[in-house]
Amino acid sequence: MATGGRRGAAAAPLLVAVAALLLGAAGHLYPGEVCPGMDIRNNLTRLHELENCSVIEGHLQILLMFKTRPEDFRDLSFPKLIMITDYLLLFRVYGLESLKDLFPNLTVIRGSRLFFNYALVIFEMVHLKELGLYNLMNITRGSVRIEKNNELCYLATIDWSRILDSVEDNYIVLNKDDNEECGDICPGTAKGKTNCPATVINGQFVERCWTHSHCQKVCPTICKSHGCTAEGLCCHSECLGNCSQPDDPTKCVACRNFYLDGRCVETCPPPYYHFQDWRCVNFSFCQDLHHKCKNSRRQGCHQYVIHNNKCIPECPSGYTMNSSNLLCTPCLGPCPKVCHLLEGEKTIDSVTSAQELRGCTVINGSLIINIRGGNNLAAELEANLGLIEEISGYLKIRRSYALVSLSFFRKLRLIRGETLEIGNYSFYALDNQNLRQLWDWSKHNLTITQGKLFFHYNPKLCLSEIHKMEEVSGTKGRQERNDIALKTNGDQASCENELLKFSYIRTSFDKI
């Protein structure tokens, strides 16, 4: 039985969820670079991206490699990797027998973001014989899940209580170790020597080791999670996991709180800001991140802002960003909400898709409305799209047979046209069989910064309504002859009103 693990408890099935942008060198404390989270699957090609990484700022997932063999891993080693800020997950990587050479110096898994409450997941690794993470000293947050690894031993010899604050939620089941077939031998045991430290858990006094050649490092209890030197002297209180010299914040392997210019500090002093819960960055760093993602459509890219001495992905609820200094300031009234469309555009074809934009005031991208039916549609669209004030790209209304009016965009005031449909149009209306009105132009103002209007096959939309939009939106004169079809717009509506004058002759039985 794995020490510190839980057996036999019912657990939810383990679901495996399925960018080499360097964020800056980590400095003297770390020998390499800070790398983003990685999802490495199918083959070993991307694994080489770990070569210079000291910190993975995010998670590391290595999974679904069915053609790899043990010899493929023999020359692979990433000794610079010290810390993973989120979680480490391995799933069905064939041929991998140990992690001792792959990650010989991995010391800390912070667990800032977890995989279903777990910071370390080893699942269905069919050839893994031992973990071998002999320098792993601290899992700051989260638990361990090690399950269905039929060859995995050296679990009962690990004292997880020396690595985690609590072992109650560890789930370590259905491994070879369960069948008591392992016969784990710690260093020196074969020669009758006791080389590794022994600890007591559940009444068992057991030597602690990761492999037959690597003991588990056990520091004096007084050192807590700070770690200790090879001689057993406690590291500085700002260290986490390990250090090369005692009581020196510049000799830590990793930091308990924050890293700044080669030393570990309790908090980031001005003019620095907390970033990702582990390091200090200056304003320029946060500003660069903001600008890199301002026009990016890459998933996970955030326009970072500053709030409460932190550089964070977005302002919290009730705050909006001051564009001059990136500071989050309290909103006066309802907060603006910028919604970034991942692929640059979004099609609204149902109430469900409209709900995804609920509360958005600025759309960074283009909207395509293609709704053919739905219950209580006008009210639903207004509830979900009615706060949109600005669209950076274009607005396209296409084959939306259920629409009679666009009044559900009740606050839309600006279409920038930074991206144009077919390279020309910022407003595009095609084949809307029941569209009769755009907006009530006596109450609604709309500016279209650039781009043209396109109207074709809107049989109940009168040309007068379209011409009014040209005047109000500032697009009059931009359109070419064929942009607004004269014969297919309003051709099934009563669009022309003329005053009919009647004269009559009164007659009676005795007068003409």
Rank of each mutant, 00 (worst) to 15 (best):
H28N: 13
L29I: 15
L29P: 11
Y30I: 05
Y30C: 15
P31N: 15
P31V: 13
P31G: 14
E33W: 11
E33D: 04
V34L: 14
C35W: 00
G37V: 08
M38D: 08
M38I: 04
M38E: 13
M38F: 03
M38Y: 10
D39C: 06
R41A: 02
N43R: 11
T45W: 13
T45K: 10
T45R: 14
R46P: 10
H48L: 11
H48W: 10
L50D: 00
L50Q: 02
L50K: 02
N52R: 13
C53T: 01
C53Q: 00
S54G: 01
V55I: 15
I56R: 15
E57A: 11
G58C: 01
G58F: 00
H59I: 04
L60M: 06
L60T: 02
Q61K: 15
Q61L: 05
I62K: 00
L63Q: 14
L63C: 04
L63T: 08
L63M: 14
L63P: 00
L64M: 04
L64P: 02
M65L: 07
M65V: 11
M65A: 12
K67R: 12
K67E: 14
K67N: 08
T68L: 11
P70N: 09
P70Q: 05
E71L: 12
F73R: 01
R74Q: 05
R74D: 04
R74W: 06
D75K: 14
P79I: 05
L81G: 00
L81Y: 00
L81S: 00
I82N: 09
I82S: 11
M83S: 12
M83T: 05
T85M: 09
D86N: 12
Y87E: 00
Y87L: 01
L89N: 01
L90W: 04
L90N: 00
F91G: 00
V93K: 00
V93H: 05
G95L: 07
L96A: 05
E97H: 04
E97M: 02
S98I: 01
D101K: 05
L102M: 15
F103W: 06
P104C: 02
N105G: 06
L106N: 02
V108W: 09
V108S: 05
R110K: 09
R110L: 10
R110M: 12
G111H: 05
G111R: 00
R113G: 11
F115Y: 04
F115N: 01
F116P: 01
N117R: 04
Y118R: 04
Y118Q: 06
A119C: 04
A119E: 00
L120N: 01
V121S: 10
I122L: 13
I122A: 11
F123Y: 15
F123S: 02
M125P: 00
M125S: 05
V126A: 14
K129W: 07
E130L: 06
E130A: 14
L131S: 02
G132P: 00
G132Y: 01
L133S: 15
Y134F: 04
N135G: 12
L136A: 01
L136K: 00
N138L: 07
N138D: 05
N138A: 14
I139G: 00
R141V: 04
R141C: 03
R141E: 05
R141K: 03
G142E: 00
G142C: 02
S143D: 09
S143I: 08
R145E: 01
R145M: 03
I146T: 01
K148H: 04
K148I: 01
K148L: 15
K148V: 07
N150K: 04
N150Q: 08
N150P: 10
N150V: 12
E151F: 08
Y154C: 00
A156L: 10
T157P: 08
I158N: 01
I158K: 01
D159W: 14
D159Q: 03
S161P: 04
R162Q: 11
I163W: 01
D165I: 07
S166V: 09
S166R: 07
V167L: 09
E168A: 10
E168G: 03
Y171I: 13
V173H: 14
L174A: 09
N175G: 03
N179H: 10
E180F: 07
C182A: 05
G183F: 15
D184C: 05
D184V: 05
I185P: 14
G188T: 05
G188L: 11
G188I: 12
A190D: 14
K191A: 08
T194M: 15
P197H: 04
A198V: 04
A198N: 12
V200Q: 03
I201K: 04
I201H: 04
N202A: 04
N202E: 02
G203S: 10
Q204P: 03
Q204R: 08
F205W: 12
F205T: 02
E207Q: 09
T211R: 01
T211L: 03
S213G: 07
S213L: 12
H214R: 08
H214F: 09
H214L: 04
Q216N: 00
K217S: 09
C219T: 01
C219L: 01
P220V: 05
I222T: 06
I222S: 12
C223M: 00
C223Y: 01
S225W: 14
G227P: 08
G227Y: 06
G227R: 03
T229W: 10
E231G: 13
G232D: 05
G232Q: 07
L233C: 01
L233S: 12
C234S: 01
C234G: 01
H236F: 04
S237I: 06
E238F: 05
E238Q: 12
E238I: 02
C239Q: 00
L240S: 12
G241A: 09
G241V: 06
N242I: 12
N242H: 12
N242M: 06
N242V: 08
C243P: 00
S244Y: 04
S244Q: 13
S244T: 07
Q245G: 15
D247M: 05
D247V: 06
D248W: 06
D248F: 03
P249N: 11
P249F: 04
T250Y: 11
K251M: 15
V253L: 15
V253E: 06
C255T: 00
C255L: 00
R256D: 06
R256F: 14
Y259S: 04
L260T: 15
L260W: 07
L260C: 02
R263F: 07
C264M: 00
C264Q: 01
V265H: 04
V265T: 12
T267F: 15
C268W: 00
P270V: 13
Y272S: 11
Y273G: 04
H274G: 12
D277W: 07
D277Y: 14
R279E: 10
R279S: 13
R279L: 05
C280Y: 00
V281D: 00
F285H: 13
F285W: 15
C286Y: 03
Q287G: 14
Q287P: 02
D288Q: 15
D288M: 12
L289F: 02
L289C: 08
R297M: 07
R298T: 14
G300M: 12
C301N: 04
H302Q: 12
H302T: 12
H302Y: 13
H302W: 10
Q303N: 13
Y304S: 03
Y304F: 14
V305S: 06
I306G: 14
I306F: 14
I306E: 10
H307A: 08
H307W: 06
N308P: 03
N309P: 05
K310W: 14
K310S: 09
C311E: 00
P313L: 10
E314F: 01
E314R: 04
E314L: 04
C315R: 01
C315W: 00
P316G: 05
G318Q: 11
T320S: 05
T320M: 11
S324P: 13
L327R: 11
L327K: 15
C328E: 00
T329I: 11
T329G: 15
G333W: 13
G333R: 11
G333I: 11
C335S: 04
P336A: 05
P336H: 12
P336W: 09
